[in-house]
Design a protein around this nucleic acid. Sequence first.
DNA 1: GCGCAATGTCAACACCGTTAACATTGATGT
DNA 2: ACATCAATGTTAACGGTGTTGACATTGCGC
Lengths: 209, 209
Amino acid sequence: MKRPSESSATGRYHHGDLRRALLEAAAAAPDIEHISLRELASGLGVSAAAAYRHFDSREALLAELAAVGIGQLQQRFADTFDLHAPAADAQEAIARLYRLAVAYLRFADEQPAMWRLIFGAYAVQTRANALQSGAPTSYSYLPAALQGLYTTGVIAAPPAPGDLLFTWSTVHGAAALRVGNVAAAQGEVEHVGAEVVQRILRGIGAYGL
Amino acid sequence: MKRPSESSATGRYHHGDLRRALLEAAAAAPDIEHISLRELASGLGVSAAAAYRHFDSREALLAELAAVGIGQLQQRFADTFDLHAPAADAQEAIARLYRLAVAYLRFADEQPAMWRLIFGAYAVQTRANALQSGAPTSYSYLPAALQGLYTTGVIAAPPAPGDLLFTWSTVHGAAALRVGNVAAAQGEVEHVGAEVVQRILRGIGAYGL
DNA sequence: GCGCAATGTCAACACCGTTAACATTGATGT
DNA sequence: ACATCAATGTTAACGGTGTTGACATTGCGC
């Protein structure tokens, strides 16, 4: 309808979908946070000022890009288990937590720049907005996984706030150390995930594993 | 001897200790990573080019500043317990881990910009250098604390690499979530530290608490 | 098919990191 | 004491950056 069939810019005065193109080009850059608007624009055969028809500022573009990244992360979480389907049994509940941890680690591994953008100073506001939107977010999965551990009897008591804090901290921390190239956190994602999840389970009171 | 008594720059052609002054001014800035050399220099009543007599580049200055920050963090760790004095008993060994966690959290709380500088993309090389220097570093304390838990009988087996990874991840992650303004990690430092350490202990196999 | 809002261009501003050429200075050796 | 020289500062300039205002082109809705 409105979108020209070509997304690449030929000699046309109007690009067609510059907003999306800018975000995609930025996401494709190896060093997201250090790209320049001018470089980005000229790479798309467009003037730098054109970007300001779509974003208030460079920061606004990065914030929007962070939102895209949060969406990607959430999608990875969604691929690990269905938020609305309760875990069938203890084994499945534990597997969900494990898959979640591995997804977290893998995302950090594959997109470290995006990871830093999401959890760096820029996107604090972006994350806050994503949270108060009400819709299920990436923040819904970890609590759900813990709840599943309870309903399947892996843990005896409903997960306390401290359990969520602890679990989240551990998974997030392992990913952060990985992005930071800290030696202790390198190695196979599956291995790190297993080491960490095993101890998380013990930490929140899952006995007899 | 060589240093003029005044550290503030009066009309003198030579500043006296510009290198230190630049680092201090940068550390005092509210948003370390986004300061400009020119602003920094002009704030000290000095030309921007003067900074290049002391640092190869802006990045080099930030790297050096990160090294300073790592030193400060290490000092906080050193204040929690003596690396060379073994823990007297189980209670003391546990208290050491707790104080370490709280120190970690407090540092992140009080100097979030420095925290980001240290663990961000810039200082990867800096941290690597600090590690291979051989001297005791901030990376020595967590392993030592875990070892203390073993020697005092809190845990039955010597700490495995996975135990270090797990403990480090959790503490680091809690601090990172805090810096990132994630709601679950806010609240009193002592409380967050206690919640997290309690579960870490369980996670690494400390029973009967 | 006219007109207007959307979307682009161009030119300019102030600022930035960085460098080269030059200036001042404090310490050092005789 | 004094010349010398390395250390440390200055100024001027380069190319690059984010951002803005004035103007140009275009496609969609009446």
